[in-house]
Design a protein around this nucleic acid. Structure first.
Length: 109
DNA sequence: AACATGACGGACA
DNA sequence: GTGTCCGCCATGT
């Protein structure tokens, strides 16, 4: 069994183009239902070192989490380039774009 | 070991 | 819809 961090990274790497997942959802699949903050940490520390599709990770309300305007716009642009519609407040239609892995957590060694 | 950090989540008013 | 508050927990110092 890999660490929470490793499993979370694996999950993030497997989010399909044009789909999104929430922090809490990723934490849940990685085996820690209330580990959303760890996912945040991972993106902070790993997004620069690994080539993770960090832009496909949003908060539970279906919005981009960044407060920083520049970063916010960058993520919005990334998502729109993949065909994901994002309104001006950063809101995304989870019903339509959220990815639901069919592989259970056990499969993520 | 104690403390701070973090792009969060959920419950509530 | 908004804002506040508290719980969460791996990691870094």
């Amino acid at each position: 069994m890999k660490s929470f961090t490793e499993r979370a990274i694996t999950i993030i790497e497997n989010i399909p183009n044009g789909k999104v997942m929430t922090y809490g959802q990723i934490a849940k699949y990685a085996g820690s239902p209330r580990g959303a903050r760890q996912v945040v940490r991972i993106l902070h520390s790993m997004s620069g070192k690994f080539q993770l599709p960090w832009h496909r990770v949003i908060n539970s309300k279906g919005e981009i989490g960044f407060q920083d305007e520049v970063q916010f716009k960058r993520q919005k642009t990334f998502l729109e380039s993949e065909g994901v519609f994002v309104n001006n407040r950063g809101k995304i239609d989870l019903e339509y774009y959220q990815y639901h892995p069919e592989v259970p957590p056990e499969e993520y060694e």
